[in-house]
Design a protein around this nucleic acid. Sequence first.
DNA 1: CGTTGTAGGCGTACACCGTACTCTTACAAC
DNA 2: GTTGTAAGAGTACGGTGTACGCCTACAACG
Lengths: 214, 214
Amino acid sequence: MYAVKAMPRPRSLTPAQLAAAALAVVDRDGLAGLTMRAVGKELGTSTMALYRYVADREELEGLVVELVLDRVDSTPPADLPWPERLRVLVERVRAATGAHPAVVPLFPAHRHRSPGVLRWSEAVLGVLTEAGFDGTRRVIALRGLLSYVIGAIQLEHLGPLSGSGTVTMAQLPRTDFPLMAETAQAARQVGPDEEFGGGLDVLLRGLVAHSDRD
Amino acid sequence: MYAVKAMPRPRSLTPAQLAAAALAVVDRDGLAGLTMRAVGKELGTSTMALYRYVADREELEGLVVELVLDRVDSTPPADLPWPERLRVLVERVRAATGAHPAVVPLFPAHRHRSPGVLRWSEAVLGVLTEAGFDGTRRVIALRGLLSYVIGAIQLEHLGPLSGSGTVTMAQLPRTDFPLMAETAQAARQVGPDEEFGGGLDVLLRGLVAHSDRD
DNA sequence: CGTTGTAGGCGTACACCGTACTCTTACAAC
DNA sequence: GTTGTAAGAGTACGGTGTACGCCTACAACG
């Protein structure tokens, strides 16, 4: 065999275009609007053409998650004490996902395949290593930060302690849930930034304590 | 009008039966198997009969979440320092959801309507109040604990740092992600209990620090 | 004890989903 | 121009949630 006999028709779409179209659909119609048919229409192609680029719907979702997460800058900030550097890295994830809140529910299921998350995790591990973490403690620190960022972002976008949910919570029967009603009242004046940042503060303080002793 | 003219046929199902049947389906066939038809079959009734008890599928999901979360014991444990009491409360949530891992993805979307979660939150707030937290700090402490427990449970059940995902992570290109590969190696010997408990430790230490100063 | 009003439960039907399969089409290499 | 190949389109199928209308069982009445 000297040469290939023929080259077929070239692809007319890039994976990036596909992901962008899917993200546009999600941003416009919400996560429930993300269907193969809708993305096909968005691109001006047939529904089935998408399957030349993607094995199934789940992989399409993965592309969307990746597109959002790739925008996270994972170069660790310099000239700061290490807890502050971690804070910056975590806040960047929050900022990137906050721009597309509808994709947040996809985050947990697809996170582990995204190169963007891997780069981010590598950066976090770098900072932790410089701070003296290693072995089990470093694993736990990374897991803790990841857990917090995932949980807090989900709470922020579909939780009751921020946004409209706070109102419903404040109307709870005060006899059954006196502290909840009182807390909801206080929560209304906190604001999502302070809420997220405050929780992160607590976690970082814990990490500082964790690195000092033992 | 002295009396009602007629009383109709009584209901043949209780909401609890409905929830139990739905949970049985989820435990057996996974979350994807939770369909109105499947639950109808599980109960020996028609599909549409379910709509006499529930407005739509989402409400059915809510019942499942509630059933799982109602099993969390929210009586705060006594005779312990407050961080330990918080730890017990958090671990109880993990234990309850761990018994039905397939419902974990439903957790974030339905959490805020579950009375079980409200009771649990009230108990957490009680412990925090005794520890001297109030106002904004108490809000942030509760949110931080909730964020961690939600995020960590999701990571545990569909994440890469535990279970099979660790294997894939250890096979990452070491040149691009040296720390991730190394960490995955270490993570394999940690175990989910230690991982969850360790992260919780960090958070609780942060809360202690948070309560001491300022 | 029959009659009757009411709500419970059932069956059908529809719109929509993901996607398997088949056929046509456009293009690069000869 | 011919041709081999993969790209893209069209059709079709089994599944989903659920709107709608029908029949039915039962508690309250005369």
